[in-house]
Structures are given as C-alpha cells and as structure tokens.
C-alpha cells in the first residue's frame, strides 16, 4: 500500500510534507525545466522586500566541510515585479506558493504583506525575521523574544493570510523565541535559518566572503537543526516546519520524528534540482519499508535515548 503523505498544518493542507526552502529555489520558475512544481507540498520563494534589492558584493559563497556559507544579502526583484512577472506563471504551474517576506524595518514587512494580500495565488507568508546577512553582525528580529513577538503580531494583524515565522538558530534559547512567535499570533514557525559563520583564508588572513560573515547551511548543520526543531516543538502548540541540511527522505523522516509537521529542503536543491520530489519519493519509500501508513504518524515520536551506534 502506498503510504499517505498528505499533511495538514491546520491553516494549510499539503500534498506532502516537503517544501522548497526560501533562498534556495529562486522564484520557482528556475526549476520548472526539471520538475513539476505541483509535485511537492509547496515552494517558499526567494525573500521579497518591497522594492528591488542589490544584495552583497561577491564573493558570496564558500563551500565548507559538508556545507555552504552564503552571504547573498537577499538580492531580489521586489513585490511589484514578483506579482507582475512571476506569480502568474506560478499560478499556471499550480504550485502551492508561500511568499517569504522581508523588511528593512517593521513597516516594510507590513507594506510587503499589504501588497501581497491584494494578489491571488499565495497560500501563506513566511516572515524572514532571521536572515543573518542583511544587517551588521547578523542582527535580525528573531534574536530576541520581544522583537519576534511584536513583529509577528504586527504582521498577523495586517495579513489576511496565515503567517509562518522563520526563526534563527543564532540564539541561546530557541524554545523561548518559538513561544514568543506563537504569542505574537504566528500560525506556524519554521526553523532553522542559517548559522552565522566565518570562513578565513589563512594564507591571505582575509575573510573568504566580501561580507565577512555569512550563513552556514547544508548537511553539516542537520544535527543542530534537529535539536532546535525538537526543542521548539516541545515549546509550542502551533505547527513546526523543520529545515537544515535535509538531503534524503530519511533526513526528512528524522525531522518529522523530532516534531516537525512539514520540512523544507534548501541547499540540496543546488546540487540536485529535483531534490524536493526525490525526497518526497524517498520518504514514501521509507514509510512503506517501515510499515508506516501515514507520514503524519511519524511526527513527534522520538523515543528514549541510548540507541546510538558507532559508524563503521
């Protein structure tokens, strides 16, 4: 029997729990030559400020052991070009689209939401309150519970659509931040955004990125992401969407077990443009193999400790 991957976030029903993560999937259209956008649970498009945005100077990328540090700086086309040029094509592709909302200040988040609220074809907003690459020293609203709660509350009040708050891992207590997002009225939280990082060229004694600091993603961050999803899921009643280094169906299953109701696939899209559909298929195969009827049955089922084994 084919396992049932359908996923209910309460405010949104998904074909399967696999979403494409913002910043790794362009505006979605870059991937239509490889896959059907309707085959995955949904896509979270690249972060949108109100106007077009230049982004950071290059070099913007450094590959590290099993990971990637980026400092793109949210270069993008802005909401007007997105609504005019991109959104009609995404509607035609029958994709479930979540817009990733950015702002230089709280007012801009609200302006972006008010503009997008007038457009059709969006399922929800993911508030990017956690990008480490747009202010000095990785500062962002998701570093403090008060700023998280207040910004989420303002956006929620302004929005006719559900709000997912995307959280930062660069905090002391993720449970406290997740609870603050819930208190602000978030319909869900997604985590983790990238880990604030530094790569150095020892020979020249210079940072490898023009921006000096960047955000680490990829398989290297998965254990940290799993830990934070586990902690956040224990702290809130709203759905948790997990992400960080997922490259396989079994990785996705681990996030569900840790307490995520859905997952986002990020950096893996760069290596394998069909990663999202492959991971959905692999999750289905995993469930079939393990005799699990519905992938939702995996959510929050982490057992007791003590089953570690040495890798050979």
């Amino acid at each position: 029997m084919t396992p049932d991957l359908s996923t209910d976030l309460g405010f949104l029903k998904l074909r399967n729990p696999i979403l494409a993560a913002s910043g790794t999937f362009g505006y979605g259209l870059e991937f239509t030559q490889f896959m059907s956008l309707a085959a995955v649970g949904g896509i979270v498009v690249k972060g949108l400020y109100y106007g077009p945005r230049e982004g950071n100077p290059p070099p913007r990328l450094v590959e590290t052991a099993g990971g990637l540090i980026n400092a793109i700086g949210l270069q993008g086309v802005g909401v007007e070009a997105f609504a005019a040029d991109v959104l009609p094509k995404l509607r035609a592709a029958e994709a479930t689209v979540i817009a990733n909302v950015c702002g230089a200040d709280d007012d801009e988040y609200v302006r972006v939401i008010e503009f997008l609220d007038r457009q059709e074809g969006l399922a929800a907003y993911e508030l990017n309150i956690s990008c480490p690459n747009v202010r000095r020293n990785g500062l962002c609203p998701a570093l403090r519970p008060e700023t998280t709660r207040d910004l989420v509350a303002r956006c929620k009040a302004a929005s006719r659509r559900p709000i997912i708050a995307k959280l930062s891992p660069n905090v002391t207590d993720i449970a406290e931040i997740a609870a603050a997002a819930e208190a602000g009225g978030a319909d869900a939280v997604s985590l983790i955004n990238t880990l604030l990082s530094l790569a150095i060229d020892a020979r020249t004694r210079r940072p490898r990125l023009a921006n000096v600091l960047g955000g680490l993603s990829g398989p290297a961050v998965k254990p940290i992401a799993l830990r934070m999803v586990y902690q956040a899921a224990a702290a809130v009643r709203i759905p948790v969407i997990g992400l960080g280094g997922i490259t396989s169906g079994e990785d996705a299953a681990e996030f569900l077990i840790a307490g995520a109701r859905a997952v986002e696939v990020g950096t893996a899209n760069f290596v394998d443009p069909t990663a999202t559909v492959r991971i959905a298929r692999e999750l289905s195969e995993f469930c079939a193999r393990e005799g699990i009827a519905r992938s939702a049955d995996l959510v929050g089922t982490l057992g007791k400790g003590g089953h570690g084994t040495l890798a050979r």
Partner: peptide, 16 residues
C-alpha cells in the same frame, strides 16, 4: 569564471 552554487540561477551566488 565564477564560483557557483547551482549553475542554473537559483542561488544568486555567482554575480559580477
């Protein structure tokens, strides 16, 4: 020539 994350326009890492 540039360092590239993806090669097909998704990552915005290779700009000049």
């Amino acid at each position: 020539e540039s360092l590239m994350g993806c090669g097909f326009g998704a990552c915005w890492g290779c700009v000049k």
